[in-house]
Write a protein that binds this DNA or RNA. Structure first.
Length: 180
DNA sequence: CGCGTTTGACCAGCGC
DNA sequence: GCGCTGGTCAAACGCG
């Protein structure tokens, strides 16, 4: 139950050939539930329907959208044929074109209802920064995977519009197994 | 003593 | 060029 939607999302994306990644065996961490959401009703477990993949917005789309979170979301929705069950074929071609133009940036963002901001996703993180960001009363925290040589980073911030929610953004792919 | 966090400084990109 | 903003660095500090 815990992360069935996420598992479905993740595998459907991978099956579609999209290059989206999250930490391996993320969805199998029991500790994830213990830390974050046990006290919540089952139907509020996780809001992975708000999962999206951030991409660089087109240059003519910037400026009018205040919240970068939703800006990223809109880019995904308008740029391809994604739904909760994406076919991914057109996006795969877009990806290949993107890869020729710029380095691959694998980034996944999602929102969870959680009391704690640092969710246990099976990896060990080292905090390296904290910043107040515009249009949000909550600070954004920056973490790096503490495994030597691993390039993965994540940003964590509490949703300004819904303080129950935590927005987590992963960037990069782990070059190792989880810490457990 | 080693490791992780805190926090102000610094830097790069962008718009004007 | 200047100011704003987001992201990173690194010294100081805290804790086990």
């Amino acid at each position: 139950m815990l992360s069935s939607f996420f598992r479905h999302y993740y595998h459907s994306e991978m099956a579609a050939g999209n290059n989206y990644r999250v930490p391996s065996d993320f969805h199998e961490r029991d500790q994830f539930a213990e830390h974050s959401i046990l006290e919540l009703p089952a139907d509020q477990y996780l809001m992975f329907d708000d999962c999206w993949v951030e991409e660089d917005p087109p240059s003519d789309a910037s400026g009018s959208v205040q919240n970068p979170v939703y800006q990223a979301n809109e880019v995904v929705e308008s740029g391809g044929s994604r739904s909760s069950h994406p076919d991914g074929s057109s996006r795969t071609r877009e990806r290949e074109n993107d890869n020729e133009r710029r380095e691959v940036r694998e980034r996944v963002a999602f929102r969870t209802i959680s009391e704690v901001e640092v969710l246990d996703d099976g990896f060990k993180w080292r905090k390296y920064g904290k910043k107040m960001v515009k249009n949000s009363a909550n600070p954004r925290n920056y973490y790096r995977c503490s495994v030597d040589g691993c390039p993965v980073k994540k940003r964590v911030e509490r949703d300004n519009e819904d303080p129950r929610c935590v927005i987590t953004t992963y960037e990069g792919v782990h070059n190792h197994q989880s810490s457990f």
